[in-house]
């Protein structure tokens, strides 16, 4: 009474194993696709842009003449933008995370705040641009200054900082705060002296990721009406400004008129990518250096 014919099974097994191998190859190629595209993108942009990067380009003023154009104004604008975004998102983001994780007791309130943060993270960046345009540029009448752009960007990247900080705070083991309470520390003392220092690496990593998102975003600033004209270098957060992505945007658009603008755009992209690389490398360094000690 043999229900299973071994020879048939063996035959079928061979085809099944072959299918598995083919599928594995296909899955691997799919994964490789991303790697290859990234490689092409980077090689292509670097080869197009690298020849245009020199000290004059990095420190020069914007110019309509292709070989005299520089991006110092955009670099400064990006830096000033960070000066606004970094503290604003850190203060609001970390405070929100502390409040949600450590103070809110009502689980319903907590879930409302969480859902809200998750939804904000999914709002298209251009909608933040419209909010910024309506609120900061028009209603509060800031105009196209760093502060308006920075506040808009801060709202945009806030969810990143909140979520990262929440995770970092949650990862601090309870036994540390218990030890602190056991010594008669108040809640805020425990938060400030024990929980926040322990969560700091995670918080900083999140903040840096948020910053790198902010300096690469373009759409909200386009909506705010940030120009890429011949404006003086910004010297503070109340000055009009442009940023690297805006510069890339205009040069790319105009490359159909003057082909060399595409090279300038590529050179600017290289500059932007280097900035992002430095920021992300810092985040990874922080993450590795302060691997959990408890």
């Amino acid at each position: 009474m043999n229900y299973i014919d071994q020879t048939v099974v063996m035959k079928k097994t061979n085809t099944r194993r072959l299918k598995n191998k083919l599928a594995k190859g296909m899955f691997f190629l799919s994964t490789l696709f991303g790697v290859v595209v990234l490689f092409i993108l980077i090689v292509r942009i670097i080869s197009q842009g690298i020849g245009w990067i020199d000290l004059d380009f990095l420190t020069g003023k914007l110019s309509t003449q292709v070989d005299r154009a520089g991006i110092m104004g955009a670099i400064l604008g990006t830096l000033w933008l960070m000066v606004v975004v970094a503290p604003v998102t850190m203060i609001i983001g970390v405070s929100t995370a502390i409040y949600v994780e450590l103070y809110v007791k009502n689980s319903k309130v907590k879930s409302i705040i969480q859902t809200n943060i998750a939804n904000l993270a999914g709002v298209p960046s251009i909608v933040y641009g419209i909010l910024g345009l309506t609120l900061f540029v028009r209603l509060l009448d800031f105009g196209n200054i760093v502060l308006a752009g920075g506040l808009t960007m801060s709202l945009l990247v806030l969810p990143i900082v909140v979520v990262a900080s929440q995770e970092a705070i949650r990862a601090v083991p309870d036994h540390l705060s218990e030890a602190s309470y056991g010594l008669g520390a108040t809640k805020w003392q425990t938060i400030r002296r024990i929980i926040l220092p322990a969560a700091l690496p995670g918080i900083l990593t999140g903040a840096i990721l948020a910053l790198s998102r902010a300096i690469g975003e373009t759409a909200p600033l386009v909506v705010l009406g940030i120009p890429a004209l011949l404006i003086p270098f910004p010297g503070g957060i109340f000055d009009t400004f442009t940023v690297l992505p805006m510069q890339i945007y205009y040069w790319t658009l105009d490359s159909s008129l003057v082909a060399e603008y595409a090279n300038l755009a590529a050179a600017t992209i290289v500059t932007l990518l280097v900035c992002l690389f430095v920021l992300n490398a810092t985040a990874i360094l922080i993450r590795n250096k302060f691997q959990k000690k408890y």
Partner: peptide, 9 residues
């Protein structure tokens, strides 16, 4: 992590 403007370009 690549900015969308770069993809646009």
């Amino acid at each position: 992590g690549i900015p969308t403007i770069v993809y646009g370009f």
